[in-house]
Structures are given as structure tokens and as C-alpha cells.
């Protein structure tokens, strides 16, 4: 099943879907951080990590018509548990790579921008990113077009909340002592719950 998932990634690439639905988000970050509007440079890494965590770019695999996870793949010789585990494993791997890329970009950007990359901001970014990643995985429950809308909205909302609140969200979390490893632990616990819930739902639901 994992090889089928990888082949899907290789064979399918819909630049049009990507540009139409989610291509705007990387631009938002460029405008936010590279046009002199330095509202909260410490949010650069968290914003990038959230962007990758939302799997927004996976929209390029979705043509809006093919019901891969609810119709096609379950018709092939795969069990639903296998499909779900493979779906999760590949995306989890991509999430880790996304976090590393986010960190690398942030590191290079920090050479000429006032970007803070201390441990607390990195943990904050990873925590938020994993939460959004877990929510984004629910997209396999939906019809193709709804899935695109869901991923687009999730990315837009999470980035919007993160950036518009400036540093308020981070400060509030600090005030209630949900910070650093605690926040990361909560995020992973919630993510685990969502992942199990999503898997059980996918296994038992027959749309």
C-alpha cells in the first residue's frame, strides 16, 4: 500500500489545483515577513511550520473528482486499516520533513531578518504544526472538493489566527504556563487522540 501511495505522489501533480486553492498562502508569508512589515518576526518559524503542518500543498494531488480514500483505494486489495496507516505514515514523514525545511528556511532567513529561533519558539511552532497536521488528516473522510476546501480553510484560519493575533497567542500560552515541552506534550496527546479517532472513523464508516 505504501508503494501505491508513493506512486500516487509521483504520478499525480496538479499545479492548477495548488495555485487555485492554496498557492496564496506562501505569498501571505512573503508579504508578512519580507516587505518591511515586521510585525512579529519571532512567528516566522511557527508560521512556516504551521503552513507545512496543514499539508496545504497536498492539494496538488486532488483533482476535485477522484474519491481516492473513500472509493478507489478501498476497492483495491487493501484493508482500510492498511490504507489509513499508509496515509498517516507518509504524511507524518512529510510533516517531519516540512518541519526540517521550515527550520532550515528560518535559519537562513535569520541571517538577514530579526527572526528568533530559540528553543521555546521552535517548540511552539512544532506544537502548533502538529496540532494542525492532525486536524488536516481528517480530510480523508471528505469528498474531494470538500477535502480541498477543508485543507484550504484550515491553512487560512490557522495562519490568520497566528499572524493576526501577532504574538498574543504565544503570550497567553506563556501566561497560563502552557509552554515549551508542556505545550508539545499536549499537542502530541491531542494529535494522537485525533489520529486514533480518525482511524477508527475511517475503518468503520461507509459513506
Amino acid at each position: 500500500m505504501f508503494s501505491v501511495e508513493l506512486a500516487l505522489f509521483k504520478e499525480r501533480f496538479l499545479l492548477k489545483s495548488f495555485l487555485t486553492y492554496v498557492g496564496i498562502y506562501p505569498l501571505v508569508l512573503v508579504f508578512q515577513f519580507f516587505t518591511g512589515n515586521e510585525g512579529a518576526p519571532q512567528l516566522f518559524f511557527p508560521a512556516l511550520a504551521v503552513l507545512f503542518g496543514s499539508s496545504f500543498w497536498l492539494v496538488f494531488l486532488n483533482d476535485g473528482k477522484t474519491d481516492s480514500y473513500r472509493r478507489l483505494l478501498p476497492s483495491l486489495p487493501f484493508g482500510r486499516s492498511e490504507i489509513y496507516l499508509s496515509h498517516f505514515a507518509l504524511r507524518f514523514l512529510l510533516w517531519i520533513i516540512g518541519c526540517l525545511i521550515s527550520y532550515a528556511i528560518s535559519f537562513f532567513a535569520s541571517l538577514f531578518l530579526d527572526i528568533q529561533l530559540d528553543l521555546s519558539h521552535v517548540l511552539y511552532g512544532i506544537s502548533l504544526s502538529f496540532g494542525i497536521f492532525s486536524l488536516s488528516n481528517l480530510s480523508l473522510q471528505f469528498k474531494p472538493m470538500i477535502s480541498i476546501a477543508y485543507l484550504g480553510a484550515l491553512t487560512g484560519l490557522s495562519l490568520g489566527l497566528l499572524l493576526s493575533a501577532n504574538n498574543l497567542l504565544m503570550q497567553e500560552l506563556q501566561n497560563i504556563h502552557l509552554w515549551g515541552p508542556t505545550l508539545l506534550g499536549i499537542s502530541f496527546a491531542l494529535g494522537l487522540f485525533l489520529t486514533v479517532f480518525n482511524g477508527v472513523l475511517y475503518r468503520w464508516r461507509r459513506p
Partner: peptide
């Protein structure tokens, strides 16, 4: 049920991995 944006040979390549 197959991917509308792909050509038949591309879909076949994916499906060939699924069937023994």
C-alpha cells in the same frame, strides 16, 4: 473511479502495484 488527470498508462502503473 480513476484519477481523471492521469493517462491510462499512468493509472495502470499505480494499479499494477496493488494487484499481485
Amino acid at each position: 473511479p480513476y484519477y481523471e488527470n492521469l493517462k491510462p498508462s499512468q493509472v495502470a502503473k499505480i494499479l499494477s502495484l496493488a494487484y499481485s
